[in-house]
Simulated scan of single mutants.
Amino acid sequence: MEDGLRREGDGIVRNGDKVLMSRDNVLAIADKYGIDMDGVRFSLDKVRRGSGPGREFFGVTMPDGEIKLARDAFMNEEQLARTIAHERFHLDELRDGREFPWKESARAAYESRAYAYEERWWQAHKHLIEAE
């Protein structure tokens, strides 16, 4: 392992607070927080990042249902767990037949629902961050 990288008891490889950007870590976080990833297509976007504090880019769910997780999502365990839950919510909406929000007016409601879900979800799951 590289200097600074360590695997915790939960199987997640970290460098300080940051979570190593890997498929195994995504699946380990999903498992730890009870997020079902069976049949979920996801990729790691190691290039795209936001433009600083308050303008981070965590991920996106594509119209075809693929989830792309970006570098900013891996800043710490909480952010990665929240991002996976948020994007999984979008995927569930698409799978339930909701239209992908091509127009900006529809995108605001789409994101508002997902952020409201994410916040409720995190309040119910944040105790797991300490679980090793």
Rank of each mutant, 00 (worst) to 15 (best):
113 R>F: 05
109 A>M: 10
57 F>D: 04
76 N>L: 04
132 E>Q: 10
64 D>Q: 13
46 K>A: 14
5 L>P: 06
90 H>D: 03
125 H>E: 10
70 A>K: 13
59 G>K: 07
45 D>Y: 09
113 R>Q: 05
15 N>G: 06
26 V>I: 11
29 I>K: 15
90 H>F: 02
108 A>P: 01
5 L>C: 13
131 A>Q: 14
60 V>Q: 10
48 R>V: 03
12 I>F: 05
7 R>Q: 08
62 M>T: 02
105 S>C: 02
107 R>F: 06
126 K>C: 00
5 L>S: 11
53 P>N: 08
44 L>G: 07
91 L>Q: 12
126 K>P: 08
41 R>L: 10
89 F>C: 04
122 W>P: 12
96 D>G: 09
65 G>P: 11
85 A>M: 09
103 K>M: 00
6 R>G: 15
46 K>S: 14
125 H>F: 05
120 R>K: 02
80 L>M: 15
126 K>V: 06
84 I>D: 10
92 D>G: 00
2 E>R: 12
84 I>R: 01
100 F>V: 02
80 L>N: 13
102 W>M: 00
22 S>D: 10
51 S>H: 15
26 V>Y: 07
122 W>H: 09
19 V>D: 09
38 D>H: 07
26 V>D: 04
84 I>Q: 09
56 E>S: 10
87 E>K: 01
97 G>I: 05
60 V>N: 02
44 L>H: 07
35 I>Y: 11
55 R>S: 11
73 A>C: 04
128 L>S: 12
16 G>I: 12
42 F>E: 13
122 W>F: 09
93 E>R: 08
38 D>G: 09
66 E>C: 05
19 V>P: 03
14 R>W: 14
70 A>D: 07
118 E>I: 03
34 G>F: 12
82 R>Q: 05
62 M>S: 11
10 D>V: 06
77 E>C: 07
26 V>L: 12
58 F>G: 00
113 R>C: 11
73 A>I: 14
63 P>M: 00
128 L>I: 15
6 R>F: 15
8 E>C: 12
125 H>A: 02
78 E>T: 06
125 H>Q: 04
31 D>N: 13
62 M>H: 03
94 L>H: 00
125 H>T: 05
34 G>T: 11
124 A>V: 00
23 R>C: 12
91 L>N: 14
87 E>T: 05
53 P>E: 08
33 Y>D: 04
16 G>Q: 11
80 L>S: 13
113 R>Y: 06
33 Y>E: 13
83 T>M: 09
25 N>S: 08
28 A>Y: 10
77 E>Q: 06
79 Q>Y: 13
123 Q>G: 08
123 Q>H: 10
27 L>E: 14
56 E>F: 11
15 N>I: 07
76 N>W: 03
15 N>L: 02
